[in-house]
């Protein structure tokens, strides 16, 4: 139990997808102009994350790994399909995003309109595919995968809402013209990353 809590804290703060790995920076920078939209996108990302990563774990364990196909026929025990991982992972994610998009459109049309193009673009949000790939590289088991994907999702949510809040305040700041917009957002993200570095080494 402690081990899982530790993994969750680590995924949220210490190895935050944005500040430690720069995953999902495109939508992070583009959708963080207003808190409300950032909030909606963050929730959508958490949801897609905890849906797709465990799904990808099951695909990896029961279809792709060496010997995983033995349950069909013993002669398939030597088949190793891990090189197909990229294609299958991204297909799962694209499918899940499609479902989320339809659900959001039906139940909260206002959020759907404000997210606009960025909802389908969750498919190409690096943080989602990145979490699946980290799951594969670090060889988590199923429970760990669920906890890790939840942590990564919350980490993204936290980061994007924080940046949106700072950028709303920045509208009243006097920034040199060439630095406005993207430049200052980058530097602020860097400063926030330094703040998050202070979490490193925390063990529960």
């Amino acid at each position: 139990m402690e081990h899982l809590l530790n993994l969750l804290i680590k995924a949220i703060f210490v190895e935050n997808v944005i500040f430690a790995f720069f995953l999902g920076m495109c939508s992070f920078l583009a959708v963080s102009k207003k808190i409300k939209t950032a909030f909606g996108l963050g929730l959508a990302v958490i949801f897609v994350m905890i849906l797709t990563t465990p799904l990808n774990y099951l695909i990896l364990t029961y279809m792709l790994k060496e010997g995983a196909l033995a349950w069909i026929h013993p002669s398939l025990a030597n088949v190793d399909l891990t090189f197909l991982a990229f294609i299958l992972f991204i297909s799962t994610i694209a499918g899940a995003v499609q479902i989320v998009e339809m659900a959001v459109e039906k139940f909260t049309p206002a959020l759907y309109n404000s997210l606009g193009i960025f909802l389908p673009l969750i498919t190409v949000n690096c943080s989602i595919l990145g979490t699946s790939l980290f799951m594969q590289e670090r060889e988590y088991n199923f429970v760990e995968t669920v906890v890790f994907s939840l942590g990564a999702g919350i980490g993204f949510f936290l980061a994007i809402v924080l940046l949106a809040a700072i950028r709303e305040r920045l509208r009243y700041a006097n920034i040199p013209a060439p630095l406005q917009g993207l430049g200052i957002a980058m530097i602020i993200t860097g400063l926030m990353g330094m703040a998050f570095l202070s979490f490193s080494g925390i063990q529960l």
């Binding site: 790995f21 060439p178 630095l179 917009g181 980058m186 530097i187 860097g190 330094m194």
Partner: peptide
Amino acid sequence: MLPPAALFIIGIYIWVQRSWNKKLINVS
């Protein structure tokens, strides 16, 4: 060596590039 340095360098790169190339300002 730490991740934030990359963001600072890109931020400054953008600053230099846009001061140089005025028409990029406010492209966002």
